[in-house]
C-alpha cells in the first residue's frame, strides 16, 4: 500500500515538474505572460508556507511578508555588496530570516486567535519600518534597483542562461519543492500533530503533544519558504523596496490560501493561479480592476467559506460520508488486555 502511494506520489511530482517546465516554455515567446507565470510560481511557494502555518496549524500570521523581506534584503546584500554566490547567499539568508522570524514571533506563538494575528501584525509593521529607516542596509524607501539575475553553471550543461524561461523553470521547480515539503510534512506524524493543534490546541497538549515546540517548528519552516521566495523575487523582478514586503503582501498571501482552500495541498495553488494574474490582466481596466478583484473574493468567501478547492473536497467527503452513516449497535464486549 505504501509502495503504491509512493509510486503514485512520484508520478504526481514528475507530472508537476513537467507542467511547470511546459508552462515556462510555452510562455517563453511572450515575456509578459512568462513574467505572470513566474510571479504565480513565487506566490505558490509563499502560499505553501502560509498554508502550513494558517491552513494546517491554524495560525494566521501577518508578518510573513516581513520575513520574506529579510530573506530578500539579506540575499541581495550578500550577493551584491559582499560578492557571495547567489546560490550560497539564499540558504544563508533564508535560515537567518527564519531564525529572526521565530525569535520575533516566539512571544506571539504563546497567544491564540485574534491576539496572535494582532501581535504578528505589529511585528510586520515594525519590520516595514526597519526596512525604511535603516537605509544603510536597505536603501530606505527608494529601494534597491537593477538587481542582476544570478548566473548558474550546471555540470553537463555549462553556463545556463537565466534571462529567458530558465528562471521561470527554476521558480516553478522551487514552488513545486515548497508544495512537496508541505505535502510530506502533512503526511508525517508532525502533520497529524499540527492538524490536532489547529483543531484544539488544549486537547492536543492533553494528548501529550508539545504544542509550543510544533508551533515553533512550523513557524520556522514556513518562514524558510517565505524567505527563499523573497530572495528569488528580488533577483526575478530586479527591484525591492519596503513596499514590496508590506502588510498588504501578507494579506494577499493569506487571501490566496483562504480563496483556494486552506488546509488542502491544491487549494493555495488554485488561489495563486486565479488571483495573481487578475491585476496583470486587468491593467487597462484600472478603474474596475480592484472592484472586480474584491467582488470575486467576497463572492467566493460567502458562497464557498472553505475556498474553491476546499468546498469541492468537502462536498465529495459529505457524499462519501452519507454512504456510511449506519449507527453502530451498543453491546458491551470484553475489555482488551492492556
Amino acid at each position: 500500500m505504501n509502495r503504491m502511494r509512493a509510486s503514485k506520489d512520484m508520478w504526481l511530482w514528475i507530472s508537476g515538474a513537467a507542467l511547470v517546465i511546459g508552462l515556462a516554455l510555452a510562455t517563453a515567446g511572450n515575456r509578459f505572460a512568462a513574467f505572470i507565470i513566474g510571479i504565480v510560481f513565487l506566490n505558490v511557494l509563499w502560499t505553501a508556507g502560509m498554508n502550513l502555518l494558517y491552513g494546517y496549524t491554524g495560525l494566521v500570521s501577518m508578518m510573513t511578508a516581513g520575513v520574506a523581506g529579510i530573506g530578500a534584503y539579506g540575499t541581495v546584500k550578500l550577493f551584491l555588496d559582499y560578492g557571495w554566490s547567489f546560490w550560497f547567499a539564499v540558504p544563508v539568508s533564508a535560515v537567518g530570516a527564519a531564525a529572526v522570524g521565530v525569535i520575533l514571533g516566539l512571544p506571539a506563538l504563546r497567544l491564540r486567535g485574534f491576539y496572535f494575528v494582532l501581535s504578528s501584525l505589529v511585528i510586520q509593521v515594525a519590520l516595514t519600518l526597519v526596512f525604511i529607516y535603516f537605509p544603510q542596509f536597505t536603501n530606505g524607501d527608494t529601494g534597491i534597483t537593477q538587481i542582476p539575475r544570478p548566473g548558474l553553471w550546471l555540470p553537463g550543461f555549462g553556463a545556463v542562461d537565466l534571462t529567458g524561461p530558465g528562471f521561470e523553470i527554476i521558480l516553478g521547480l522551487l514552488a513545486l519543492a515548497g508544495v512537496a515539503v508541505v505535502y510530506m510534512i502533512i503526511r508525517s506524524r508532525m502533520g497529524a500533530f499540527i492538524i490536532a493543534i489547529r483543531e484544539d490546541d488544549l486537547l492536543a497538549e492533553e494528548l501529550g503533544i508539545d504544542v509550543t515546540r510544533y508551533k515553533v517548528m512550523v513557524f520556522f519552516i514556513s518562514s524558510l519558504l517565505m524567505a527563499v521566495g523573497g530572495a528569488f523575487y528580488a533577483v526575478y523582478t530586479g527591484f525591492i523596496s519596503p513596499r514590496s514586503f508590506d502588510v498588504l503582501m501578507s494579506m494577499n498571501i493569506w487571501l490566496m490560501v483562504a480563496f483556494g482552500g486552506r488546509g488542502t495541498i491544491a487549494g493555495p495553488i488554485i488561489g495563486s493561479a486565479i488571483l495573481v494574474p487578475i491585476p496583470f490582466l486587468l491593467q487597462e481596466l484600472y478603474q474596475i480592476k480592484d472592484i472586480f478583484y474584491g467582488s470575486l473574493i467576497i463572492l467566493v468567501t460567502v458562497a464557498m467559506p472553505a475556498g474553491v478547492y476546499g468546498t469541492i473536497l468537502k462536498w465529495w467527503r459529505v457524499r462519501r460520508q452519507k454512504q456510511n452513516t449506519a449507527v453502530a449497535p451498543v453491546a458491551i464486549k470484553r475489555m482488551p488486555a492492556e
Binding site: 452513516t325 453502530a328 464486549k333
Partner: peptide
C-alpha cells in the same frame, strides 16, 4: 480499543 468501545463502524464518521 476500537472493537471494545464499538467504534468499528464509525471510523469514517
Amino acid at each position: 480499543l476500537i472493537h471494545w468501545l464499538e467504534l468499528d463502524r464509525r471510523l469514517d464518521a
